[in-house]
């Protein structure tokens, strides 16, 4: 039955080459922990992707309850955490996932660095990876504010004061991020929400797509 469906689709859109490329490629021995246990270091990239998937899904579901409004943001988070069944787990996944993804990303980066895997011809993919790291830190910074609790508010205020210290454009930069020159308030929250939920994930998806296409193009780096 499945074979028939596959053939029906394949006849029309010829997916075998795509499928072969994605799924039927070889995995070299040196990245396979079954052959060399030390190859577990190759897992960190995949685990990073796994946590990103968790973040995307949990984030999507969190917005079913969350409102980016200074009167209600905290209340909505408090409600989903205390009143909604499994709300605490979903928020917990998003909260801890944000930390775990940074850890995994760091380990992945260190693996690539110490193996020298970024050397020719993989320079571009390394740079895309570092950009992914930046985007992830940006997601962490903007997401920190959203629950609108004291921790969020004051950490963001410090972050924005730091942005203000930038020479020449500091004041403008702060206003652009915060939506107001002095107040960290209603406009800051909506801005951070937009950046956290639309702008940075958009950039993240694009970068991740490039990252993966490049890996399939170039193959995984050889053994040391």
């Amino acid at each position: 039955m499945l074979q028939k469906i596959y053939d029906w689709i394949d006849e029309r859109i010829d997916i075998t080459p795509i499928w072969r490329d994605i799924a039927d490629h070889e995995v070299p021995e040196h990245v396979n922990p079954a052959h060399h246990f030390s190859a577990f270091v190759y897992c960190f990239g995949g685990l990073t992707f796994f946590v990103v998937v968790i973040q995307i899904l949990s984030g999507m579901f969190l917005t079913m309850y969350y409102v980016p409004d200074i009167e209600n943001a905290w209340k909505s988070v408090y409600y989903l955490q205390t009143e909604v069944a499994h709300g605490q787990i979903v928020r917990g996944m998003h909260h801890w996932g944000a930390s775990v993804v940074i850890v995994m990303l760091l380990l992945h980066t260190l693996r690539v660095f110490f193996q020298g895997a970024y050397k020719k011809p993989r320079e571009l993919n390394w740079m895309v990876g570092v950009l992914i790291f930046f985007v992830m830190l940006g997601l962490g910074f903007t997401g920190y504010l959203l629950p609108w609790d004291n921790k969020a508010y004051f950490a963001t205020q410090v972050g924005l004061e730091m942005a203000e210290q930038v020479p020449v454009i500091g004041g403008e930069l702060k206003a652009l991020l915060a939506g107001d020159e002095e107040i960290v308030g209603a406009q800051t929250l909506t801005r951070f929400f937009a950046i956290h939920v639309f702008f940075l994930p958009g950039a993240l998806f694009a970068l991740m797509a490039i990252h993966f296409v490049l890996i399939r193009r170039q193959g995984i780096s050889g053994p040391l």
């Binding site: 403008e172 206003a175 652009l176 915060a178 939506g179 107001d180 020159e181 002095e182 406009q187």
Partner: peptide
Amino acid sequence: MAIDPVLQPPS
């Protein structure tokens, strides 16, 4: 629209 806050005169 996005940069409007930057162009507001200082309060």
